[in-house]
């Protein structure tokens, strides 16, 4: 076996990469440490050392109870937008990507061209026009205003299209047809399983996109009761400045930590699935 295929592990390379690892981790470590401090400790002790009292659990408690438990409400809203928005986006992208990959109907090329073009349209450039249209339609300040635009993932459709083209043999669909299965049944019973790694990948990236969504809810919502975590946290943070400033740094920091944890867990646990999905997707790039 050649040395290129089975090289020896290099300490130098590992050390260099460890520097980058530190860069990735330090802000998160800072956040973790800061979440254990009281507000006075935050202001008086160095960033990367612990404060006099360990206040993590007090902070978590205050985060959830501050302002009549609005944080919990925001968490619920985020979950709603993620489940309906990202869930819907995954379903729509999967069905459409599969339809485009496995059926040769009239207008197929046009649909594909338009969707690929849409990947290049900047989401934020679209957000202001969407706001203007939705305010005309009376959708502003409702959950629908956030959910509807999240339902479209052109990149997700592209990924499923690439995936379905290779993962589902026409013969398999044909055999099912001969057995008398309808097209919907073929999709649900035969092909969904084949598409699973691709679907998990699309779902995970759609979840991240909606969980992290800030600009869209920021412009669509003015009622704090409908805010997702991202917009709410920024509102808490901006309480610290202005005439009637009421800084709640410790809650912003603890809230930020609580916002990160579910996503990190999801990525770690689903690692195997989405990484194989991405690899399959890149075969054709």
């Amino acid at each position: 076996m050649s040395s290129v295929l089975r090289p020896r592990r290099s300490r130098t390379l590992t050390a260099v990469m460890a520097l980058y690892l530190l860069y990735s981790l330090i802000p998160l470590v800072w956040l973790l440490i800061s979440a254990t401090k009281t507000q006075p400790d935050l202001l008086s002790t160095p960033g990367l050392s612990f404060g006099g009292t360990f206040a993590l659990f007090d902070n978590i408690g205050s985060t959830f109870t501050y302002n009549n438990g609005i944080f919990l409400r925001w968490l619920g809203n985020t979950l709603l937008y993620v489940v309906v928005g990202a869930g819907g986006a995954t379903v729509l992208a999967t069905a459409a990507g599969y339809g485009l990959a496995k059926y040769r109907f009239r207008g197929r090329q046009a649909v594909f061209a338009v969707v690929l073009g849409a990947i290049a349209v900047p989401g934020t450039a679209l957000a202001v026009p969407t706001f203007l249209l939705f305010s005309r339609l009376g959708l502003i300040d409702t959950p629908l205003a956030v959910i509807l635009p999240s339902l479209i993932s052109p990149f997700g459709l592209y990924l499923i299209w690439v995936y379905a083209t290779d993962a589902i043999p026409d013969e398999m669909m044909e055999a099912a047809r001969i057995d008398g299965a309808g097209e919907l049944r073929i999709f649900l019973a035969v092909t969904l399983r084949q598409l699973a790694p691709g679907i998990v990948t699309v779902a995970l990236f759609a979840v991240v996109a909606t969980w992290n969504n800030y600009f869209l809810p920021l412009i669509m919502l003015s009622d704090p009761n409908w805010y997702p975590l991202t917009v709410g946290l920024n509102q808490w943070s901006s309480q610290a400045v202005g005439a009637a400033a009421q800084p709640i740094y410790h809650l912003v920091i603890t809230g930020s930590l609580l916002t990160i944890v579910p996503l990190v867990i999801a990525f770690l646990f689903l690692q195997r699935f989405w990484q194989s999905g991405l690899t399959a997707g890149s075969v054709k790039q």
Binding site: A95, G99, Y103, L132, L133, L151
Partner: peptide, 24 residues
């Protein structure tokens, strides 16, 4: 059979029209 492919694409296309094409 092929024409039924539209049924899979239609939901995406409808929402796409409302949230991409119409705002533009």
């Amino acid at each position: 059979h092929h024409r039924r492919g539209w049924a899979f694409v239609a939901p995406f296309a409808a929402v796409f029209a409302l949230t991409f094409v119409a705002p533009l």
